[in-house]
Design a protein around this nucleic acid. Sequence first.
DNA 1: AAAACGTCGACTGTCGACAGTTTTGAATTG
DNA 2: CAATTCAAAACTGTCGACAGTCGACGTTTT
Lengths: 235, 235
Amino acid sequence: MRHASKPVGLTAVAAQDLVSQIARSLTEAIVSGQLPPGSKVAEAAVARELGVSRAPVREAGRLLESQGLLVTHPGRGFFVRAHSPEDIDDLYDLRICIEKHAAVLAARRLTPEGAQALRRQLAVLDAAAQGHDPAAQVEEDYRLHRLICEMSGNRRLLRLFDDLSSELRIVIGLIGRLYDDPQRIADTHKPLLDAIESGDDARIAAAVEFHLGDAWRGVAGLVRAMPADPRGGHR
Amino acid sequence: MRHASKPVGLTAVAAQDLVSQIARSLTEAIVSGQLPPGSKVAEAAVARELGVSRAPVREAGRLLESQGLLVTHPGRGFFVRAHSPEDIDDLYDLRICIEKHAAVLAARRLTPEGAQALRRQLAVLDAAAQGHDPAAQVEEDYRLHRLICEMSGNRRLLRLFDDLSSELRIVIGLIGRLYDDPQRIADTHKPLLDAIESGDDARIAAAVEFHLGDAWRGVAGLVRAMPADPRGGHR
DNA sequence: AAAACGTCGACTGTCGACAGTTTTGAATTG
DNA sequence: CAATTCAAAACTGTCGACAGTCGACGTTTT
């Protein structure tokens, strides 16, 4: 065998097309608050602005709808979803439910490398918190939780986590800096990792409940205190 | 205001339901096994057959993709999703997780009317089982479980249940008659309802785990015994 | 004969256009 | 002056068309 006939793997060029790109662009605009909840997302305007036709924009809209970022009013188009306080409660309730499960599963299959990866991510999160970079903080927090879900070994669960996250991002993004206190980050995340390493189901459940419950209360409080959304929850 | 200028809402016939209609049509074809897992779903063919253009077909495809019924290979189009045994495991694992939670929540908010509704649905399910109508059995079983999720009061959870159900329906549909034994239906569902009425969290959890674990084992066994899928799990 | 190459056909991804409907905004009326 | 009516503008849902891409098949090369 002389020539390396096929071996040399170059970087697999992402064929992924316009739709994902548009979806990302829209998501950005939504979580950044540029497109506030309840506001209309006109296909033509988006298409014009991005220099594409309406077809891929429509598909991106469908995609974001399935992710809970947009809603469709038949004949009227897409609107940025406005989450009611009850929606937030539902989201966090469900999130606690599945993250509890994920953490238990992750603990069961935990390897030394896995534990190390978790510790490392916690360190990154702490650094972001110390650095007072709200955006990075939210991002690294998300990564830590996602890592746990990844370690659960249940891919469907991971997909659900991603869905819930993108929904929550609308809210979190609006609130802006939520987790101000670096100390609080450590106080709630460290016990969670300790619990996972202990392998004690009850302890893990308690830790998840405490940690996410804390976040829930924070978000719920801020949301309910927010300007009564100009373009309310429904219709 | 004299004339009813446009008022009297007749059947507010959903204007936009071409997409939903196509989606339903495709779903039907998939769960009925007419479109076997792994098979290609050509847009043009579907469009021609239904007498519509490709645009709404595409959107319906995206919708079904978000529901886990189809997968899309960039540049190649839609394919009926072929679930691997591991996918089934993931699905049931997740389902048990959320139904456990739903049942606990439902028990907490249970009203006499709610309990009665559950009993009634169980009776309908039993009747379908006695009648040896596999399709009706699956349908009524689904309704009972959905009712519990509805009673949880968490709408996001209900949506997730619907998503999981439509994914599972591919598998269940292929297997055909799964729950043959009417006795087994009663044996696993009745204790579940009893547990919910008792309000004992641990008992509820155990009941859900037993009931769905039973179904899980049944489905998993049949799936693994199936003809090694001609168009395998990935790529 | 096996592997690589080149061509052909089919299909996807994207676009611009059209009809019907909703929204906007102005003119009108009580 | 406020409410109503009506017409123009804008937008959605759908369609047909075109270019680029992917897979299959037959051909050439080693």
